[in-house]
Structure formats: C-alpha cells, structure tokens
Design a protein around this nucleic acid. Structure first.
Lengths: 128, 128, 128, 128
DNA sequence: GTGGTCTAGACCACA
DNA sequence: GTGGTCTAGACCACG
C-alpha cells in the first residue's frame, strides 16, 4: 500500500507478486540506483518484518536470496550489510535489465510484433 | 521439449510456468499472428493432451480459460473451435502487448534506467 | 440461427442449451399455444433432423422425451403424431410454467429479494 | 443433504447441478443477502471441502470462479477473503436477478402465457 | 498453515 | 466421438 522508507530503501508491497520477490527487487533497485550505498547496514530481519508487516520468514528468504546474489553479506553477531564491492551490483543490474528485455521480446515475438512496433509502444508509455 | 505442431499451432512446454498457462499463451500467439485462423477447429482435449503428453484436465483448463477470453467456443458434442470474431483476438493481443511493456517499464524504472537506455538494450537484442 | 417452420412449429436452435431440450421445449410451446393441433402428423425424425441440421439421434431423443410426456404417440409404420387428448398438453403446460416460476423464486429468495421487488422487475422487462 | 453452516454461509448441495456451481451460487447469495460481510475470511479450501464432503479441487474451482467475478480475493499463504468493495456484489446481484427474470419470461412466452398470467402465478407461490 | 498445479482415472451428458 | 464434473492423492510455492 503506502510506501515505507528505511535505510535509503523505499518499500512498496502489493499482493500481486510474492512479497519476498518484491523485497529482493526493491533492494536491488535501491542499490542499482545508488540510493542504497555500499557497505551500509541493513535493517535486521525482525525489524524489517515488523515495518513491512510481513512474516520474518519472508524477509529472511529475501535476505538469503540477496546474499546468494552477492548483494548482501551477513557478519555473525554484527548484522547484515550491503556488499562493499560494486561488481555484484553492476552484474545484477545487467542481469535484471537483460532478463526483462528478453521477457518483453518473448511476448512480442509470440504476438508477431516487430522490433519497430515494440519501440513505438515503449515511446508511447509514461515513464515517470 | 521439442516443439509440437498441430492445426497451425506450435506448442513448446517447459517446466518454468504452469502448463495450462503456456498452452493458453501459445494458442493466443498463434491467433494473434494469424497462424491459427478464425472459426477453425481445435484439436480435441484428449488429442492435444496425448500430443503434449499432459493430462486432459490440463488441456481442458487451458481451453476453458481461452473460452472465457472469447478466443474459443465449444459446441456440445462437436468440439472446440476458434472464435469467428476478430475483436477478441485484437483485444487480447493489445492487452498482452500492453502488459508486457508495462512489466518492462516497471523493472527498468526500478533499476534507474531511462527510456533511452532501455531502447538501446532493445536495439541490441536479437529479434528473430 | 434463423427460425425454421415446419408443420405449424417454429424451431430456433442456439448452441447455449442442448438441442434436444430446445426441440422438446419448442414442440411443447407450439402445442401449448395451439399453433400445433391435436392428432397432427409430426415430421419424421430424419426429415426434421435434416431441416434443423442436427444429428437424427438428437431428434430421436427429443421425440422419445415427448412421447414419455404423452404429447406425442408413434404408430408403427404410420409415423409420429401429436396426442389426441388435450389433458397431457394442459398438464405439461402447467408443469413447465410452475417449474419456471419455482426456478425464479429460488434465485430471488437466494438473493434476498422480496416478491414485490421481483414483480417490479418483471413489470420492467419487455414481454413481446 | 442437510444444510451446513459456516462463516455466515449456509451450504446445501444436491446432485442436480455441479457442486462447484452450487457453492458459487450459495456464496453469491450469502453476500447478496448480507449474511456474509465484506472483507471476511472464507473457510479454507481444505476446511470447506471436508465440511461439505467434497474434493478440495471442487471447492477451489468454486473459489476461483468467485475470484474471477471479483467477489473473493486471495492473499498468498493467508487464505481467501470476501472483497472489500460493494460494487462487485451489487453487480452480480443484478446480473443474477436479471438473468433469472429473462429465463422465466422466455419460458412463459414460449408457453403463450401473458405477463398478467405470469404475475398471477407468482402471487400464488409460497415465498418464504 | 494457505492456495495452486498436475496426474490418473471414473462417470456423465450431448451429438 | 466430444466436452464437463468429480475424486484421490501427489507435489510445489508462499508466509
């Protein structure tokens, strides 16, 4: 519903997609856009769960996914931090962008639309 | 899986999404591209199930979804046919294209990419 | 689609309900309205099937239902005729009307509508 | 069967129509009559299946139909709830009432009965 | 715990 | 032959 800001990240959850995926995506986005810096402390699992009104297991799963991607690291007893290296951020950013483009191209080709027709549709859509 | 062609439709199922959704998408695509004409007979539920090596219930669910969208009609005891009206096909085509563009824009904005950067990525990708 | 007239009966079949039910209903209707008289010869199964472009089995089933209701009688080698007694016609007419009213009342009560509200709705609908 | 009450809904299943349609109709009715409120939790698929002594798939199909009509919403892992908006309820209510009246009028006209004769029949029938 | 997908196989209504 | 309903039971994703 209404956005929730914490530690430079703006979270906005809706029921149309899995919560943990949305958390992953929004942390990725904040890192990719530079709103969330490197080596910054993340809210704790329980803290974030409370803020977002979701089950702690859900946040846990999101953090685990993000660790697997190299975007977060957990220091035992210290908490969870964003990576100190820019490479994983860049890599994930490229992967996500590429995947999204591939998904679009898949649908458009299935519908028999050309690249030009697709570009026109993207020109017409509101961006901001 | 290797693609299976029947009645102008090419089916290719994988395990990443529900089978019935993939069947729906591929029938939609065949109609949208004109490879599957209006008022044509669809393979029977049992026949397609056997060809795709899935359960008849799975095919039936896909056919029922397509009927709800107005793309298929069934005549009692006669079988299932594509609609004789072009409007539903055009409508679905537009809906799918619009949805795919919206999904892309959502991801790109989240990553902080501009419309121009997105267009460049689309220019770079192989289309056919 | 377009109505087909034969022996005082007007047939109009659509795909939304079973063909045999529609044939039964339309023969009943023709009798109830007096458009089809008593002791009249019905078209043969094969003849009617051809006219209505349906399977002869479908017409057969309709005739059997009508025989069971006492509206038709078959004389071997002579063909099928409407009953020579007015009672079955009146009885069926009452049964059908009563059944239709019961169906309506069932739905209206389920929706929590009163008899008065129902009467108002019926007043508003086009009759002819 | 004897009626089964749960969460403000009274279920009564018989063999004359598909179970899932009867479940749909009875949930619609409970919503339309206000016996089932907005934003209320529905019994879980498995729970209702057990109560009604039907297969969970049958209940699920009913719930999915109701979701498509906008009467129910499901939250991942949380369960199924009635909508928080009154509009879909009103819309369905009108659609069902209108359809039932149309069905009645169709039969009555086929039997050659006038609006007045029909009104008389409705006056005579028990309502509660 | 929740709903969702899928299978295997039975039985029915309709043409 | 066609589609449609239902069951029993498995497995998965999500919270």
């Amino acid at each position: 519903m209404e956005p929730i800001k914490v530690a430079g990240i703006t979270f906005r959850l809706d029921a149309t997609k899995p919560f943990y995926e949305q958390i992953v995506a929004q942390v990725c986005g904040a890192l990719a856009r530079g709103e969330l810096g490197l080596e910054e402390r993340m809210p704790s699992v329980r803290e974030l769960a409370q803020l977002l009104k979701v089950n702690p297991n859900t946040v846990m799963r999101a953090y685990q996914d993000l660790e697997r991607s190299g975007l977060l690291v957990t220091y035992r007893g210290q908490g969870t931090f964003t990576t100190n290296k820019p490479e994983p951020v860049e890599r994930i950013r490229r992967e996500l962008a590429h995947g999204a483009v591939q998904d679009l191209v898949g649908v458009m080709r299935q519908l028999g639309l050309s690249r030009e027709q697709t570009m026109t549709l993207i020109q017409e859509v509101d961006w901001e």
